[in-house]
Amino acid sequence: MDIKLFESKRIRSEWSETEQKWYFSVQDVVAILTDSTDVKQYIKKMLSRDEQLKSNWGTTCTLVEMLAADGKKRKIQASDTKGLLRIIQSVPSTKAEPFKLWLAQVGSDRLDEIENPELAQARMRDIYRAKGYSEGWIDKRVRGIAVRDELTGEWKNHGVKEGIEYSILTAEISKATFGVTPSEHKNFKGLEKQNLRDHMSDLELIFSMLGEASTTEIIKAQNPIGLMENKKVAKRGGDIAGIARKELEQTTGKKVVNTGNYLGLKEKKKLK
């Protein structure tokens, strides 16, 4: 799943490789266009006003797995660009025209990124800069994403299923690296729906990369197949990072896992 920003507001999205197009969360789009506090009720009223849209709702929208409000992946109503343009016709909003232009740009950007992946990294860096992150932190975060992508690519090639099995292996690496699972790590930092890695310190990012990069190299060397074999490898990869973390903590007297987060980053940036 990807997150797109329109006027600094988040829109959940999913790129379909088979269809070569984006699917966007209908609820997120309607919420932005209307500023409604009850989006589901607004959509019901919208459909009652537009019988044609209501009759074609099953083809305008489809169920796509994305991150739900409770932090779990669920199938939610989503629509492609054509479907969203039809929905916009039934939403009286001054943001309609800017949103149409945004949709066109998102589609164009994706095609550009397929041809030149460096553009995707550049846009990602711009988003983090806008939020107020330091250049050094951004460098580590972007590198960490590349390390993670290589690891998941190896998992996919070695019989690990996306979704729950990726989560199980990630938790295994995290426990060995930090002594806590990702959910425990989030709780320690006071996070809820936020992406944990967007709130890691430089050292937390570095040790995350070490654990995942080590796991990737062991996979390449030992060729484990399936969840159970890869689970053992994930622990070994995490152990390598965990040993390094403990040695650093013993030397400095400071814990790597900390309560710090970047929840107030935007506000701090505004005050400068």
Rank of each mutant, 00 (worst) to 15 (best):
R86Q: 08
K269Q: 08
K4E: 11
D149R: 10
D50M: 11
Q27A: 14
G253E: 00
K40E: 11
F6T: 01
R12S: 10
D2K: 15
E65A: 14
D202I: 01
M200K: 00
E267H: 06
G242W: 10
R141C: 06
Y262V: 00
S48K: 14
Q77I: 01
N116Y: 12
K54Y: 03
V29Q: 13
E192R: 06
G58P: 11
I87C: 00
L271W: 06
L111P: 06
V91E: 02
E7W: 01
S48T: 06
G58R: 04
S55Y: 12
K272P: 06
I168N: 13
R110Y: 09
D35T: 13
K44L: 11
D35A: 13
G144S: 06
T259I: 00
D28A: 14
Q77V: 00
S36M: 10
I145A: 13
K232Q: 04
D239N: 10
T177Y: 04
L84F: 00
D80I: 01
K270D: 04
E184A: 14
S174E: 07
G237S: 02
I240D: 05
E97T: 08
S25C: 15
I11Q: 04
Q20R: 15
W137Q: 03
D198S: 03
E192D: 09
R236F: 02
T177D: 01
I3C: 08
S8Q: 09
D202V: 03
K268V: 01
R148L: 08
A96V: 03
K21D: 07
S208T: 08
D202A: 05
K232S: 10
H185W: 11
R123M: 06
W102E: 04
R123G: 05
K255Y: 04
G159Y: 11
Q77P: 05
V180I: 12
T251P: 03
R236T: 09
K186D: 02
G159Q: 07
Q27C: 05
S134K: 01
D126T: 02
V256E: 04
Q250N: 04
R123N: 07
E135F: 04
L205G: 06
A221I: 03
E154V: 08
T37I: 12
K100N: 14
I164Y: 02
K186A: 12
H199R: 02
A68R: 02
F178T: 10
Q89W: 07
P224S: 02
P182T: 00
D112K: 12
E97W: 03
N258Q: 07
Y262N: 14
Q250M: 06
I43M: 14
G132C: 02
K266M: 09
E135W: 00
Q121M: 07
E267Q: 12
E17P: 13
M209W: 10
V256I: 15
K9W: 07
K21P: 13
D80G: 00
G211K: 03
L33C: 15
M209G: 13
K266G: 09
A146E: 11
D198F: 01
L119K: 13
K131N: 08
L169W: 05
K246M: 12
N261I: 00
F99T: 04
Q194A: 13
P182C: 00
S48W: 13
A221M: 10
L191Y: 01
W15G: 10
D109C: 01
T59M: 13
G179Q: 07
Q41A: 15
M209L: 13
